[in-house]
Design a protein around this nucleic acid. Structure first.
Lengths: 208, 208
DNA sequence: ACAGCCATGTAACTTGTTACATGATTTT
DNA sequence: AAAATCATGTAACAAGTTACATGGCTGT
């Protein structure tokens, strides 16, 4: 929903045409999240379908200017005045993956965590050096970029710290103390337990 | 992709039926990300379509057990052995929103940041107290939960710190030093600049 | 008998995302 | 003339998500 809302918010500043929108979005987000041009036109059509935007004038060059509607303006205000609900709604890909991996009897969770740690640390270092390089740059665009960059850095730092935290935790426990076998007895309503699976038929998740 | 992969990884442990998969997923992720049952069946059908899973036996109770294929096993291994690419691919909803908001001349970015800060701090506090409450609980499920909980807490802490960081930054600068008017001159290829917009026709983004 | 959970499934829909077709203009 | 960029659009698809229909079983 964030791309959609961002484009709408930009349109609240004044009519834009497709390519211009892409440019404005890039300026405001430091070009961190590249936007496929096609997505702009898709999003515009969907916004039009929802009555938040309408096709406006076409200039001599053939540029199609889109303008926001009153309903669209209201939607932008609502967006800016509401807060982003995190935690329980947002699914964190990495947390989900590592939680699942850690509870998989066949998998080597520590290796997965260590590999991720190497990559995440590297990414963090890249972000930090980029940040330092551009620190001297001035102007509103640079400010916008540094805001986004800081967000990435803060998030990456937290990620690395979390990875170190759980690595230590996993290292403490013997081998697979988090391993969860498939629950054979159903939670409620007594049902006949499944025939025990043949022991060899289990996972072979050796790191390929 | 994470739900899909998680379900497949669980199936690598042995055949499961739909509801069971939901239960196993919940156990492994501390029930933090509730999964609509319908999504399980959708995902299973899509995994089947992609050859990663096949319909297996049906027991006396009518439970349809799904089993992973060799291709599916390969996919799980690949998942576990690859790292999650963050930063440039992942779009952070909040970072994107606040970057856009901060560059919108009509919007009160500081107010938006402060409102978000209140909500995020509150959410962090809730997470931390939940974490403390459950700290004494034992067993693999509790470990799995605490892993996910820590991830949420680390991320929330980073979010709050970032919000404080940018609030200070925004407070320093006069009023709208990050404001970005729509670029009237196109970047390259000299094109006639658009007729200047009428001054009153601009945004009225007073907080509703 | 009835409410509620277990269980499977289907249909519709959302955003995001990419690949492609088409043409104008501009730079080299 | 060729290559690159600007610009608009279309078609298809992925993953996630929800609402709903349909039964069976179970506890009260």
């Amino acid at each position: 929903m964030s791309v959609r809302h961002s484009l709408l918010a930009i349109l609240a500043q004044g009519p834009c045409y497709g390519y211009q929108l892409r440019h404005e979005f890039a300026r405001r987000t430091g070009s961190v999240w590249p936007l496929n041009v096609g997505q702009i036109y898709n999003t515009l059509e969907r916004l039009e379908r929802d009555g938040l935007v309408r096709r406006g004038d076409v200039d001599e060059q053939g540029h199609v200017y889109w303008q926001i509607t009153d309903e669209g303006r209201a939607s932008v205000s609502q967006w800016l005045n509401s807060s982003v609900a995190r935690s329980h709604s947002t699914r964190d890909e990495l947390a989900m993956k590592l939680a699942v991996a850690a509870t998989l009897p066949g998998a080597d969770a520590i290796a997965t965590v260590r590999a991720q740690h190497a990559v995440s640390s590297q990414q963090l270092a890249v972000l930090q050096s980029e940040r330092e390089e551009r620190d001297s740059t001035e102007g509103p665009e640079a400010l916008a970029w540094s805001m986004v960059a800081d967000s990435l850095i803060f998030a990456a730092e937290a990620e690395v710290r979390w990875l170190e935290h759980i690595e230590a935790r996993l290292a403490l426990h013997p081998q697979h103390s988090m391993a969860l076998e498939l629950a054979t007895e159903r939670p409620k309503r007594g049902r006949p337990s499944r025939q025990p699976r043949s022991p060899g038929a289990d996972v072979q998740l050796a790191q390929a």
